[in-house]
């Protein structure tokens, strides 16, 4: 395994894992834009991830696609076997398991251990080398259960029924997880949605997810501002305090993100409500996962690398910083 300018490179298979530039052969762990890029010659991913990439125009006609369901083994040639294990991050997210010469390396991509009704839970795969992210690797990041955060939103809807609750969510994964959890908590009103969230929500629905009724904001006449009062409007995070949100009566800007645990971060985004919704593992889960894999070596790709490395070494594990660049932390 090497760190090259294009990203993490696995020598025996001549393949990159989540490269950020176009390469000949790419193994893609999941569909988020900082992991899945366009222009690769050959792509290996789960069928769901391929579908997401297709929706986002990351795949061209000439791209050679190989879709591998979780657990399906594939011969990459030169004695290398690839299979995917679920990562619990978003729909289709996977850990890439690479076996060669009796050694097993697991590149976990982004992952989480908290329950998520919109994707398959994380699977622990025993291995020799575990390659982990460290987005939330500080002891201050202890993600609360999502139900508690959703309850906060519902409480606010009851207390401030005249305000339009505009929730900024990332279009892929977070949007759908939040909608589903709200439904499970008994929220029955339609969701109003920014156009940028439509296609991926429909994609999730294509995989059997049911989010109940939702409508596009753009399809409701501008004059009908009252429709949104006391309701939930979902949009990309950048829109909560931008021109787009000016069409709503008395908007209440809300951000749903793992960063929202830090108050100042929420204030910087001018969020009036901060929902801690993360699709990454928190501090405790990062360390627990590294331990559970039984790996002799832990390699850390991006995030608060120094803190995780320190904590793992304190526990007697061998940890190394890969210092991958190009992972965008604001995309969480």
């Amino acid at each position: 395994m090497q760190v090259r300018p294009q990203g993490l490179y696995y020598v025996p298979a001549d393949a990159y894992i989540d490269p950020h530039d176009a390469v000949g052969r790419a193994i893609i762990t999941h569909g988020h834009a900082d992991h899945a890029r366009d222009g690769h010659g050959e792509v290996f991913a789960t069928p769901e991830t391929l579908e997401i990439m297709r929706t986002r125009y990351y795949l061209k006609d000439e791209t050679q696609e190989t879709g591998l369901a979780y657990g399906t083994r594939h011969d990459l040639g030169n004695g290398v076997t690839l299979w995917f294990a679920s990562a619990g991050h978003i729909l289709g997210s996977a850990q890439a398991v690479l076996e060669y010469n009796g050694t097993r390396i697991v590149a976990a991509g982004d992952y989480k251990r908290h329950p998520d009704p919109t994707c398959t839970p994380f699977e622990v795969v025993p291995c020799d080398v575990f390659i982990t992210e460290a987005t939330f690797a500080l002891p201050v990041f202890q993600h609360p259960p999502l139900e508690a955060e959703v309850e906060k939103l519902l409480r606010s809807l009851r207390a401030l029924p005249h305000r339009t609750h505009i929730v900024g969510v990332y279009a892929l994964g977070k949007c759908q997880r939040l909608m589903k959890t709200l439904r499970l908590a008994g929220y029955e009103e339609p969701f109003y949605m920014h156009g940028a969230l439509k296609r991926l929500t429909e994609l999730y629905e294509g995989y059997g997810q049911d989010f109940g009724a939702w409508e596009l904001v753009s399809e409701i006449p501008r004059a009908d501002k009252h429709v949104f009062q006391g309701k939930i409007v979902l949009c990309p995070p950048a829109q909560i305090n931008d021109r787009w949100s000016r069409r709503f009566a008395d908007p209440l800007p809300t951000v749903a993100s793992g960063w929202m645990q830090i108050r100042a971060r929420a204030r910087q985004k001018r969020a009036e409500m901060a929902l801690v919704v993360s699709d990454h593992a928190d501090w405790g889960d990062l360390i627990r996962t590294c331990e559970e894999t039984g790996a002799d070596n832990i390699w850390i790709t991006h995030g608060r690398v120094e803190a995780l490395q320190y904590a793992l070494e304190q526990r007697g594990m061998k940890a190394k910083a890969l210092n991958l660049i190009g992972r965008d932390e604001s995309v969480e």
Binding site: L138, P139, V140, I262, A264, E306, A307, Y310, A311, Q314
Partner: peptide, 24 residues
Amino acid sequence: RMDPVLFDMARDYVGEMSETVALA
């Protein structure tokens, strides 16, 4: 209760002691 190195890293990141303690 906490490794001082990790506490310092966390406090630097959060920017404030009370909130760091509250979270960690």
